[in-house]
Amino acid sequence: MEFDLNTLWFFLITVLWVAYFFLEGFDFGVGILLPFLGKDDTDRRVMINTIGPVWDGNEVWLLVAGGATFAAFPEWYATLFSGFYLPLFLILVALIARGVAFEYRGKDKRPEWRAWFDRAIFFGSALPALLWGVAFANIVNGVPIDGAKEYTGNLFTLLNPYALVVGVTTFVLFTLHGAVFLALKAEGTVAEAAKALAKRLALPMAGLGVIVLVWTFLNEAGDLDGTDVAAVVASVLVALAAVGAVLAVMREREGWAFVGTGLTIVLVTVTLFLYLYPAVMPSTTEGVAGLDIYNASSTNMTLKVMTVVALIFTPIVLGYQAWSYKVFSKRISREQFTTTKS
C-alpha cells in the first residue's frame, strides 16, 4: 500500500460512509422501531423528537459522500449510480418520504394524517437500512462491469444471497443501534420498551454479523493482499465490539451498549472498505479488472484542491455538529408533549 492522494481520498470516503452509517444508522433504527415501540401518539412523538434536531445533519454525510465520490473518483460515481440504478432510486424515494414525514407529521392533528407519515417514516427508514447493505455487499464482492466501465448486470444480479444476507444484517444492526439510542435518549415507557427489544435483537445481530464476516472472508480468501489482512484483523475487532454490545445490552448499560453498536457499525464499514482497497468497484467479468483508486480517480490537481477544502471544513463541521448534540443532550420525555396544546 502506497500512501498517495488517491489512497487518502479512498480513506476519506471511507470516513464519510462510516460517519453516515454510524449517525443515520440510529435514526434509521428509530424510524424502523416507530410502529413497534410507539404505542400511542405521544410515544411516537417522543421517539421522533429524540432524532428531531439531528437527523437532517446526519443525512448530509451521505450527500457529502456522494459529492466527494463525484469529485475524487468520478468514474466510480458514474458506474455505481448508473449501475445500481433501481436500488438507488428506491433509496432516494425512501429518503424523500421519511424526510418530509419527519417535518410534516406534527403539522396536522388528524390521526390518519399522522398514521400516513408514520408509515412513510417506517418504510423510508427500513428500505435504505436494508438496501445500503445490499449495495455495499455488491460493491465489495464485485459486479459485472465491461471494459468501458459500464455496469452490465441488472437488478437481479444485485439481489444475490450474499448481498441479501448483508442487507438483512445492516437492517438488524441499525435497528439495534436505534433501540440502544432510544434507551439512551428517551425516558419512561419508550426507553423501557427499547431496552427490552434490544435484548431480543442483540444475539441475532451478533450471529448475523459473524455469518457476514466469515462469508466475506471466504469470498475474498482466494486473493488476500496486505489490506485484506488488515480487514481480517478488523473483522476480529468487529466480533469483539459486537460481543461487547451484546453484554452491555443484556446488563442494561445503555451508554456502553451504544458505544458497542456504534463501534460494530464503524468496524464493519472499515472491514468492507479494507477488503475493497485498492479497488473501488471490482468487476466479475472475465478479463476486466474493474475500477480502482487510480483508473477511477480525478487528476492529482483536483485531489489536491479537495484535500485542502476537506482540511479546512471538516474540523469546523465536526465542531458545530458536536455542539448541536451537546445542546440536545437531554432525554426526551412524555411530559414534554402532554402539557402542550398542539
Binding site: 483536483t302 484542491v305 476537506a310 471538516t314
Partner: peptide, 18 residues
C-alpha cells in the same frame, strides 16, 4: 467529473452541513 464534482462536494461540506 474532474471539474464538476468538486463544487458539488464543497456545497455539501460547506453549505448542507451548516
Amino acid at each position: 467529473g474532474d471539474i464538476f464534482g468538486a463544487p458539488l462536494a464543497i456545497e455539501g461540506l460547506a453549505a448542507f452541513f451548516l
